[in-house]
């Protein structure tokens, strides 16, 4: 029983990291109507930035995280302006999808060029005295608690931002009807840029948390979590923020349980297998809406 609960907590914490990434994915999809396959690689850039600033240059941890958030935020805006915006009115949505894959490779290979392909060992941002915590009978990693709390705080802030502020309402409006939003005086372009900025900033935080969990940092560090978070977003119903949150958490738990109880090697296969089954039963995902196409 104790092991099961410890596993659930670990799964939940990994899941909250997936959730933070998945929310970025789903927001960009909801508003820009595109799948940003480079989202995972922004995590990697954020991790390298935090690694260099904190481990190599010796910046204090909060300052290093903040700087890495700012770097990713700017990178997100830059990618959107240079790579995606010129294609916004291209006839085929495939054009921007393929570009996103290109950006992903560009970032991975760029990182390989700058940082080399050898694995860097990321120093956890969690202070040594709370690396492991004893909560009652349970032994929990400090990073697990920090991840869960961080994701809760981020989602809370995001909810308030979207429902209570003007830019947030503009984002909601754009996600529901772009043409009508522009008739309200909302700049769709600026709103999309803002969405990329927020998603990328969250990716940076996810990167720092993830590398504090498992310290091996390489140029492809972001690829697998990116794909998993994308799956979590689809599972929750792409475009839905609560869906991405729940999808991420469920995915993390399934992954952890199958790692522990079934097999370390095939856990990824199990995760994706379960998701395929769920999507077969409910193709729009948990919180997804059925889109009626007019004939």
């Amino acid at each position: 029983m104790v092991t099961l609960i410890e596993n659930l907590i670990n799964g939940l914490s990994m899941g909250s990291i997936y959730a933070i990434i998945a929310i970025g994915y789903t927001m960009v999809y909801g508003i820009a109507k595109m799948l940003n396959f480079a989202h995972g690689d922004i995590i990697m850039v954020g991790s390298y930035a935090a690694f260099i600033l904190i481990s190599t240059m010796g910046l204090p941890v909060p300052a290093g995280i903040l700087a890495s958030v700012v770097i990713c935020l700017c990178l997100g805006i830059l990618i959107e302006k240079i790579a995606y915006k010129p294609l916004r009115n291209a006839g085929s949505p495939l054009a921007v999808l393929i570009t996103a894959i290109g950006v992903s490779y560009f970032l991975q290979n760029g990182a390989m060029l700058v940082f080399g392909s050898n694995t860097k060992s990321f120093t956890s941002v969690i202070p040594a005295q709370i690396q492991t915590l004893q909560i009652g009978p349970f032994q929990v990693k400090g990073i697990a608690v920090v991840s869960i709390l961080t994701s809760l705080v981020l989602v809370g802030i995001l909810q308030v931002f979207i429902n209570r502020t003007r830019p947030g309402q503009a984002m909601l409006a754009c996600s529901q009807d772009r043409a009508a939003a522009s008739l309200m005086g909302i700049s769709v372009n600026n709103t999309i840029t803002l969405t990329f900025a927020i998603g990328s900033a969250m990716a940076a935080i996810a990167g720092v948390l993830m590398c504090s969990y498992s310290p091996a940092l390489t140029p492809t560090t972001g690829a697998m979590p990116g794909i998993k978070a994308f799956t979590a977003a689809v599972f929750g119903g792409i475009g839905s923020i609560p869906g991405a949150m729940v999808g991420g958490l469920v995915l993390g738990i399934i992954e952890q349980l199958s790692k522990y109880y079934i097999s370390q090697q095939v856990s990824d296969a199990i995760v994706f297998g379960v998701l395929i089954v769920i999507l077969l039963v409910k193709p729009t995902g948990l919180f997804g809406k059925v889109i009626q196409e007019k004939v």
């Binding site: 309402q169 909601l172 409006a173 529901q176 009807d177 009508a180 939003a181 008739l183 909302i186």
Partner: peptide, 14 residues
């Protein structure tokens, strides 16, 4: 072209 998932009030405020 109302915003379908928002309330009447939110639509008017937009």
């Amino acid at each position: 072209h109302v915003f379908p998932d928002m309330t009447v009030y939110q639509n008017l405020m937009l």
